[in-house]
């Protein structure tokens, strides 16, 4: 089972190494990890997708909590949340097939960000399923290069994951 964790951490040097090292040494599997700053410059936010049963999730959460730089951890999977991932894909494209590719892009509301003589580069955002589907649709044309950001996620409505937020999942 996959869990999506929203983790608030002190924006200190080395905090990523602390979190990554913990996952590696405790043998937890990270599906994806995305990190960036928040509205508060002292605080960074990681969205970590972890694979594992409830027991593993419990250990992951507790062990993460032991890191001094980790301020808050919420498993947002059981809640209503918005999640997005950004993918940039460079596809092989003869002028003849460009139209087809643009149609695929339209369906997924992807945007063309670069056009070369033999390539076309597209960006697309969406949840995991959409990105996977987009990737699959482009595969027949020949994917030259692909990069994904990993998932970021946020609770809907009046629920927050913030340092002094209303949602206390720890």
């Amino acid at each position: 089972m996959r869990h999506t964790l929203a983790v608030l951490v002190e924006n200190n040097p080395g905090v990523l190494a602390r979190v990554a090292g913990l996952f590696s040494r405790r043998g937890f599997n990270i599906d994806s990890l995305a990190v960036g700053r928040t509205e508060n410059p002292d605080v960074s936010r990681m969205t970590i997708v972890v694979e594992g049963d409830d027991r593993i999730l419990e250990q992951v959460t507790k062990q993460l909590h032991k890191l001094i730089d980790v301020i808050k951890i919420s498993d947002i999977s059981p809640e209503e949340y918005v999640d997005r991932e950004l993918v940039i894909i460079k596809v092989h494209s003869d002028p003849a097939r460009r139209g087809e590719i643009m149609q695929v892009a339209d369906i997924f509301r992807a945007r063309i960000v670069d056009l070369g003589r033999k390539t076309i580069t597209l960006e697309c955002t969406g949840n995991n399923g959409k990105i996977n589907a987009f990737e699959e649709s482009l595969r027949p044309y020949g994917i030259k290069e692909l990069v994904r950001t990993g998932k970021i996620a946020m609770l809907r409505g009046l629920r927050f994951t913030s340092v002094n937020g209303q949602k206390d999942d720890d």
Binding site: P13, G14, A17, R18, G21, R25, K66, L67, I68, D69
Partner: peptide
């Protein structure tokens, strides 16, 4: 040394 001792300290500082 902060890198080396990450797995074996409760916390560390440079």
């Amino acid at each position: 040394i902060t890198g080396i001792t990450l797995p074996i300290t409760k916390h560390n500082y440079l």
